[in-house]
Amino acid sequence: MTQVLDFVPIWTLILGMAVFFYVLLDGFDLGVGMLFGFAPDTASRNTIMNSIAPIWDGNETWLVFGGLGLLAAFPLAFAIIIPATYFPILAMLLALVFRGVAFEFRFRDGERKTFWDHAFSYGSGIATFAQGVVLGSFIQGYEVTGRAFSGSSFSFLTPFSILTGIALLFGYGLLGAGWLILKTEGDIQSAARRHGRVCLVAVLVAIAIVSIWTPLTNLAVADRWFAWPKTLLLAPVPIATAAVAIVTWRALGNSQAQVMPFAGAILLFVLSYSGIAISLYPMIVPHHFTLWEAASSDRTQAFLLVGTLVLIPVILMYSSWSYWVFRGKVRADIGYH
């Protein structure tokens, strides 16, 4: 087939968006899941649960699409990254199983209520930590021979990947606090504001450490950020991060600000995400394969693109509709009771 159009940038964009949507959407509901563990009584636990009950599995669907999108658009990357993170992915999947069924089981299973409450918050935490570990090991790169991962199933475990794991706990916690401020009132909201501030500080510390650590250990990344005049071009990213951090901190403390804490948390994720993208582009398997080398055939990308371009807007439309139906503060009479 003659090359008419390079699909790789298009798929990079689509997949980048899909993964980001996942991080954002499941991010806040995993975060809510962790904060749920700190709720003092059954009533507030129920309200917190109901704030995400109608939408959580729609959010998790982006994980499936992210995974399958990676398989479809960049199969070589999928075939290397996923076996290389065998155990974090195992932990994530099993944690998501526990957390997912807890939505249903918690309300139906009277006697074991406390067990499923714990399953919900710990499941959320473990899944988040595992995703952070995957992210850290991805940034650091994998041992590759030929077209396959050739390291050990435990080589994902490094101080750096543990750091990113912890960082994501606070990151999702911040998103979750933002969501709860948006969706609840009174005591639950005030608690979310306090938790949000703790998470924000931790997130900023983590961003700072990662921003120093990565260029120190990876020359390509250092070159990307610190070679003049690129530094000038990229300077807005850290500056914007600092600005957003300040605004978010203030919004968390201002009891009138309902939307701003969540918006601020989202912006911090946008900035961190673009920071990682800028550091790694054009590699999809850092140190080994670029997006183009890992891409699937033109026919494959074209065939899937046709449907994706039609379906993604439709999906966004009806997903927004389902968020719209459940808009506003959580009502006591909707959802699980």
Partner: peptide, 10 residues
């Protein structure tokens, strides 16, 4: 993979 991805999408 497109078959699996289409399952996700549709």
């Amino acid at each position: 993979s497109p078959l699996f991805a289409y399952e996700g999408l549709t």
